[in-house]
Design a protein around this nucleic acid. Structure first.
Lengths: 121, 121
DNA sequence: CCGAATCCTATACGATACTG
DNA sequence: CAGTATCGTATAGGATTCGG
């Protein structure tokens, strides 16, 4: 079966040019930690420490940096509660949820096929 | 709207554990160059030099390494023609096409929203 | 509890040159 | 044409400490 590029095909040239904004978004969203953080927000709001534990292996530095990037992109929203001790939680924005709707089928496929792919001869 | 993790939800813990094969596949497939190479194979076979030009900005080293990884994962197949001068082309395997069917909607969304995301205040 | 700041390391990546 | 080999750099990323 042939998958068509459709209107992604730009002229008859490179698909995403070097300074195309798509490259930037791609690097944010498809980054090592970006995907995992987004995934862990698909089932609702999560606190900082929660993400820290749930996204196994992430360092505080990378969590902070990833969240800031995603927030700047308008995919994630940060809410700080004026309490002591401080409580901050993160959630997907509508745009973030929109994105994740397209990403979930992909993630499911990867989850289903990962064992086969990694364990090949 | 709420997007559910469905059967991706493993127990009630981390979504993809640290040594989960999914992490590996994720790093291959969602890598900076992996996506772009795969994209450029969705509309059919391409030769090495073709990819080199089409995937704008990729170095020979990264193209080679990316292709080898994707081939090892069984997502891309390499065909060398015994000619002079040599001709080699790359194409998606059935598994690769299967993957790209899930990835295309995501890429289309990103392409459509990239400008908005990058140009925010 | 939620981060920011600092320091340090590994490796991803690019540029170039070379070969069957 | 289709790569491999080598070298050098930039950046991602980890570990730790500190502050609000």
């Amino acid at each position: 079966m042939k998958v068509s590029l459709g209107r992604l095909q730009q002229q008859h040239d490179a698909v995403f040019r070097e300074n195309c904004p798509t490259r930037t978004v791609l690097d944010h969203v498809m980054s090592k930690w970006g995907v995992l953080v987004l995934m862990n927000l698909t089932d609702g709001t999560a606190r900082w420490g929660e993400l820290r534990r749930t996204v196994e292996g992430i360092s505080e530095k990378m969590l902070a940096s990833t969240l800031r990037t995603l927030e700047a992109d308008g995919l994630v929203v940060r809410t700080a509660h004026p309490e002591v001790p401080p409580r901050v939680d993160y959630a997907l924005t509508p745009r973030g949820e929109d994105l994740m709707e397209r990403m979930m089928p992909l993630m499911e496929w990867i989850a289903e096929n990962a064992d086969d792919i990694v364990a090949r001869p």
